[in-house]
Amino acid sequence: MNDLIRQAIAAEAEERVDSRTVLAELHKRKKKPFGLIIGVATLTVAAAAAAVIIPTTIKKTDASPAVQPVPATAQNVLLIGTDNNDYTDSLVLARFEADGSVRAVSLPRDIQVGDERLNRLFRQDPKKLTSTVEQLTSTKVDHYAVIKMSEFGRIAQLVGGVEVCVSAATVDVQTGATFPAGSQTLEGDRALQFLRQRMGLPMGDFDRIKRHQAFLAGLAAKINKDNALALAGEVGRSVRVDEGWDVLAFAQRFQGPVKIFTATLPITDPGVTPNGQGLGVDQAQAKQFVEAQFGGTAQPQDRCVN
């Protein structure tokens, strides 16, 4: 009977479709989902990176004539990286150009707005955060995307590690994490330690923001057509976006490696508030800064971070 079984199974197997059909299909599919994947992954990545907020209230369009008219397809997205309690650890206002390039401005989370600290607004109401950012930066926020910072260890792993450069060896006295000087590839817990460290850095949270930016750029550099699909699948579930945002349509603009240009919103001297020291923002300066960054005239940042 065994021979008969062999013959029967072989006859069944013989029915298979032509492998050339499958090859053609694989080839086709490889190209199609690329845009979407890159888009979602980039969002995630960007959200991961850092914190920046940008200006211009929607309501006061007539009051801000200096803002460049934007091509219909360019969109400003607020990328919000949260801790596990929905407090904002990283805030990035990013302009996604029609060609898929991204210009991002990180907003320090300790900016003081009235009686509130910027990093607490999202938890109260995402709209409160976006409208505050619009006001601070005189820039319209078209959409927002939220991701837990803790996802970035896994994301880094998915792309085979993210390369960053540290200018001098650091020690995090809180966690014991150490980073040697020079280029290094981070993933998993190491990536999270890198993104979380504030203690032991010369500029504290500002250095952390730069780390977020460096990580974001390193991550963007690692996204390609071979890992984009897997990334989108893994990461897509962990990203929340505002209702009514057609992310699929938005993602169409990404057709190749993503270029990201990062900067940090300038702040004024710390002011003392009932909640302790908060950072101040000069609205006119912020507006000018964001316009310059979004307009593509900003200075490139150092490759290595503290």
Binding site: I9, E12, A13, E14, E15, R16, V17, S19, T21, V22, E25
Partner: peptide, 16 residues
């Protein structure tokens, strides 16, 4: 792989 998948599924389209 296609032969194997067709043999276990008994459906060439599902196998594909």
């Amino acid at each position: 792989l296609l032969r194997y998948a067709t043999a276990i599924t008994c459906d060439k389209h599902l196998a594909q």
